[in-house]
Design a protein around this nucleic acid. Sequence first.
DNA 1: TATGAATGAGCCTTCATTCAT
DNA 2: AATGAATGAAGGCTCATTCAT
Lengths: 190, 190, 190, 190
Amino acid sequence: MRIKDEDKVNRIYRAAMKVINLDGFQGCSMTKIATVAGLSPATIYLYFENKDDMIKKLFIHFKAKMGLSYFKVGMELSPSKGTFRTIWLNHYQYIVDNPEEYNFLENFSNCPLIDHVEKENKPDYCPAFETLFEESKATRLLQPMNNDIIYSLLFAPVSQMVKKSKSLNTTLSTNELIQIFEASWKAVSQ
Amino acid sequence: MRIKDEDKVNRIYRAAMKVINLDGFQGCSMTKIATVAGLSPATIYLYFENKDDMIKKLFIHFKAKMGLSYFKVGMELSPSKGTFRTIWLNHYQYIVDNPEEYNFLENFSNCPLIDHVEKENKPDYCPAFETLFEESKATRLLQPMNNDIIYSLLFAPVSQMVKKSKSLNTTLSTNELIQIFEASWKAVSQ
Amino acid sequence: MRIKDEDKVNRIYRAAMKVINLDGFQGCSMTKIATVAGLSPATIYLYFENKDDMIKKLFIHFKAKMGLSYFKVGMELSPSKGTFRTIWLNHYQYIVDNPEEYNFLENFSNCPLIDHVEKENKPDYCPAFETLFEESKATRLLQPMNNDIIYSLLFAPVSQMVKKSKSLNTTLSTNELIQIFEASWKAVSQ
Amino acid sequence: MRIKDEDKVNRIYRAAMKVINLDGFQGCSMTKIATVAGLSPATIYLYFENKDDMIKKLFIHFKAKMGLSYFKVGMELSPSKGTFRTIWLNHYQYIVDNPEEYNFLENFSNCPLIDHVEKENKPDYCPAFETLFEESKATRLLQPMNNDIIYSLLFAPVSQMVKKSKSLNTTLSTNELIQIFEASWKAVSQ
DNA sequence: TATGAATGAGCCTTCATTCAT
DNA sequence: AATGAATGAAGGCTCATTCAT
């Protein structure tokens, strides 16, 4: 008998991603995904219960990956502007390097399906963030605000700018990037 | 061809909205929309070329409506923090008052379909914004940054927070709201 | 707009019948039925909720038709051997004339689906039978037995014989037919 | 190829039976059968050519078993009413004791698949019947009728009654059973 | 203009069967 | 001999769209 190829799940993920970003969410059919992955549609059902299950796991998979990309291994995590800049740039880099994944995550966040996925699957990288935010507030580096608010003030603007510039087929210059970070930092720092 | 019954178009828009927010994007079929609008599916095709065309126009329609909600009639538009606060709160109010529309707009912004819609249809409210931003930069109220960047820094955080709090079934307190505005303002003001 | 062709239901019934008798129950697909009926598969769903619904209604339809064939219009229904012989021969004639329908009914009687169909849809011809049986028992024409038992003793043998002879590609001779009726009559008569 | 593990064939038969009676005919898949039998689906194909082949052999298997149940070992087979009553009751007992098997046989008898199976595979128990029938006619115990007709007159009514009473969730009382046998016997006896 | 009937293409999913070990 | 992974074809059903009135 053949051995179950564990990498096949990743091939499916990548194919799904590709199809979603090409044909949009409604144009993403199991057959298309299978074709792109070089599989039979039936094979997908060996690894996932059904389409919903697959999409949910796809979301969790890439959400986790994105979260992890914020923190490089062995990275300094002391509460300082430098630390935040590094994380912030890592986030930016992730969006730029993985536009398809990021687009999918954004796209999926507004989908009814996701609601209980989001709640049931707290990502692993959250604790690191929570700790950093709390310590930074304790040392008066950051303003005493709710963590979600800090997160939004820091990351939402650059995310939106990347999306905007992609839709206009332009790229952010280094200057603009620095501008955005400095402005975002002013928003949250004390 | 769309001359006679301009109201019918609006009935279709409202119905589409309702169906999308009830059954999600994939559950939104032309027949359902027609039923909710009290029409025959065939009738929709008298007013729109096809489903894509209808969705695109729906998007433009509500995008414009959202933009206009920023500026109330007869509103003072001098370059001041107060003016920005008013606009900012209008935006917040719109999101809170029209969660369906806003959700639809967000949902649809990431769709491949919309890409060239966005480029081809500069909304009408832009000139007002452009003028205000330029004047504000001239009077050194705002930092000398690209308008899109200013826009992102001002509005993206609160938008994201509303989405977040909705998904958690909470609401933003007045305090939090003020916090977010003040922080966003710090980001863009000089 | 087109007018709904009420006869279309009958076309579907006939087509379903044909397919079932050709390819068996498991080989009977909606697409095949639609093709034979000269319709699109989608059209069937305008007239029936789903496949189960269609099959159920098919069963009820032909069950009723078979029941009615027992009793010709204006037929004498006095409790006499002659009356029973007429009904019996009508039944035989029905089986021979409509082998497909009868086969379908037999086939379907053993299907799990049918259980609550049978109970919910008491056929219209039953009262006539009940009355005749009761009167016949009262005049001591028939033995005092449960009606279902009388029914089985009278009709089951000939039904089985027709099936048997069809599977052997032979036909019952008039002599054999009389033999079977007389024997069945002996079984139930007093 | 089927030499080594004759028992495995029986496991497959029993599993197929169980699945058919649990999930109906359409719900009976090879994988389910394999699972219930504790085998891999591929293994079934070592013992049978394909699904049709398996079903056919299943039919033949249980048909033979049913036929043999009529005649207990060492049983008296002289042409007498008592002999027939015993056989008749054996038949009844079989139906009641093995409702799944009987249901399967009935269900399958009307299937196009079975047509040539029936013709090609004369069951082994027939000779015993043939002999008994012929001798009984010779001694004027039975009427001079075709054996198939005798068979139908004797067994069809009780079979149908069992089916009927099962679908109504009732059971035949001893009295009713005797009634049916006596009536059936009147039909065939001289 | 407006409609409801009609449809072919396509969707998700399952299944009998084969592959490769 | 035996298996579990893999699959192409097909199943029931829906949908955007067109037809015919």
